[in-house]
Design a protein around this nucleic acid. Structure first.
Lengths: 168, 168
DNA sequence: ATAAACTTTCAATAAATCCTGAAAGTTTAA
DNA sequence: TTAAACTTTCAGGATTTATTGAAAGTTTAT
C-alpha cells in the first residue's frame, strides 16, 4: 500500500474507532495525524490535512490537550503555536483511562451511593430488586474504580505487567 | 430518596453513561428498566415507562438481544413476548466486552496489519514515524485483544480474580 | 501605543443520529 | 381460512451533535 493511502486509511480508522467510543470523530482524526507526524504541527497544517475550519481545529486541539494527549510546543522565532502528541501508546491508554474514570466513573459512583439507600416498603418486590441491583452495581463500579486507580498510578507500567501475566 | 425518583434517576444515569460510551441512550435506558424489573416486561410496558414508540422499543430491545444482554421469555397462555435482562453484573460486563472486541477491536487489528507494511522510501522521516506508530499500535491492540480473550473465555470468573488481585 | 499575527468564541447552519407511526409482515386460535 | 393479536420495517420528521466563519480577543514586535 502506498503511503498517502495508508495515512488516509489510518486517519479514517482512528476516527471511526473514536466515534464508536463516544469521542468526537474529528478529535480522533486530529489525534491520528499528530500521532504519525514526525514534527510538531500548527493549526493551519491540521486544517489543511483534514479540510476543516479554524474554529473546529482549535476546539478539537484544545480538547486533546484537556485529555492530556497533546501538548503545545513553541518553536523559537515563530509566533504560531505548534502541537505534539504523546507517542507512547501505553501512556496514551493510561491517560484516556484516567480521564474517563474522572469524567464518567466517578459521577456514576456518587449517584449509586445515593440510590442504594432508597426509602420505602422493604418487602416490595420492586424495591428489593432495585436495591439489590444498586448494591451490585455500586460494588462493581467501586472495584473497577479502584482497579483503574491502581493501574494508572503505578510508576512502573503495571497495566502492561498485569496484562502480560494474562498472556503467558 | 423515594423509589420512583430513584428509579427515574437510575434510568437517566444509565442512559447518560451509555451515550458517553457510544451506545444509544434509549437502548441503555431500556436496559436499565429491565435490570431493575423483578418480572419480565413486554413491549408495551417498556413503551409506557419510557414514553417511546413501539418501533423504537422494538429496535432497541432487538439490539439488546444482539448484545446478549437481554433474552425473550414466553409466559404460558400469553401471546406477547416478554423480555428479561441478564442480572449478574460481571456477566453483563463480560458480554459487553466480548461484543465490543468483536465489533471494534477485531476490525482495527485487520487494518493495522496492512498499514504496517506500507511501501515507500524507508529513509523518509514520515514513513519511519508512521511505521513505528503502526507497529506500536498493532502490538498494543494485539495484547489487548489477547487479554480480553482470556478474560471473557475463562470458565471461572477470571475478570473478577484478576481485578481482585489488583485491589489487595 | 499601534498594528500585525495569531487564537478563541459563538450564533447560525449543516450533518449525523435517533424516533415515530403507519403499513406490511407474521403467528396463533378457532 | 380467517381474523385478531402481535411484531417488524422504514421513510419522513425531530432531535442532537458537530462545524463553519466572521468577529472579538490576545499577544508580540517595534
Amino acid at each position: 500500500m502506498e503511503f498517502n493511502e495508508a495515512k488516509a486509511q489510518f486517519i479514517q480508522t482512528w476516527g471511526k474507532l473514536g466515534s464508536e467510543w463516544g469521542i468526537n470523530r474529528t478529535m480522533a482524526q486530529v489525534h491520528a495525524i499528530l500521532l504519525i507526524s514526525p514534527t510538531p504541527l500548527c493549526t493551519e497544517d491540521i486544517m489543511e490535512q483534514l479540510s476543516i475550519s479554524r474554529g473546529n481545529t482549535n476546539m478539537n486541539v484544545r480538547d486533546l490537550i484537556n485529555w492530556s494527549l497533546v501538548h503545545k510546543e513553541l518553536i523559537p522565532g515563530d509566533r504560531k503555536e505548534y502541537f505534539v502528541a504523546e507517542k507512547d501508546i501505553w501512556e496514551v491508554a493510561r491517560r484516556i483511562i484516567a480521564e474517563r474514570k474522572k469524567r464518567e466513573l466517578e459521577p456514576v459512583t456518587k449517584v449509586l451511593q445515593q440510590l442504594k439507600n432508597v426509602e420505602g416498603d422493604k418487602d416490595s418486590k420492586e424495591i428489593k430488586e432495585f436495591t439489590s441491583m444498586m448494591n451490585q452495581l455500586d460494588s462493581f463500579v467501586g472495584k473497577m474504580d479502584k482497579s483503574v486507580s491502581v493501574l494508572i498510578n503505578e510508576k512502573e507500567n503495571k497495566l502492561f505487567s498485569i496484562l502480560f501475566k494474562l498472556m503467558k
